[in-house]
Amino acid sequence: MLTSMQRYLYHHRTKWVGFAFILPWILSALWFDLIPFVTNLYLSFTDYSVSTSTPDWLGIRNYREILELDPLFTKSLGNTVYYLVLGVPIRLLAAFAIAVLLNLRIHALGTFRTIFYIPSVVPLVAVSIIFFGMFNARYGIFNQLLILLDLPPVRWLTRPEWIKPAMVIMSTWGFGAQMVIFLAGLQGIPSELYEAAEMDGGSYWHQLFRITIPMLSPVIFFNLIIGVIGGFQVFASAYVLLGPGGGPLNAGLFYVLHIYNNAFSYFRLGYAAALSVVLFLIILFFTVIMVRTSDRWVYYGDA
């Protein structure tokens, strides 16, 4: 064994070999993070298109177009926010409710946890294809079930007002990952807290609102922000379910679909870059909130 002095000397000696270990990462951070980030900013001030060999500098014209002339910017941002405001809380609530039920010292906990987690391992494209079939207005199982219950069928994917609820239903199916996180958080709450409450004669609901939710609120908040950040970037599920246009009247045209269409359908890469910078700023705002409050949500129990 080394003495503590030897160990100190060893660990505080400059070792260039460390760079060799992180060299691939440095290259990738440079080529796939830093340079693209700067390039993206530059492109956003140009009219770059694949066909034009030299991009022209436009100044802030792309940004003015976004804010003043692009009806689909407002539309797609509105769609995305609608989807988030409806979908993220529902998903978290479902995850939280099931986690609380599973935490009641029940039998077959592992089996239930597995069942609720399984949808989260289904590939996203497969999820969209499955729901595409289930949402079909004429033959889809959802409408057949509605008819069976004497309820009017719904044109899930062809009526603008139903597209976003359909997306929310589909994404809620995959709440398992958050549920697992909540469950671990619940199991990390010291049981002494509950025992003390029981001594004082606190009811279950009292314990839920006075102990469980406050103790778990940092984890809930963190997952809320992560959900919002992820929701702003929804792409594959909408693309597969609705197509790049986002369905009738662009009701399912989410922000990244709008970026994708501008970049790869209309080849307005400069404009699409500007759109992505706007989204970056929105996401940055939420990231800053997350980091600023992180000392409050970091969970110190054993994961």
Partner: peptide, 13 residues
């Protein structure tokens, strides 16, 4: 860093 700011420049590169 959200992936969305890398899609276009990476494609260009």
């Amino acid at each position: 860093l959200p992936h969305v700011v890398q899609i276009i420049p990476l494609f260009v590169i």
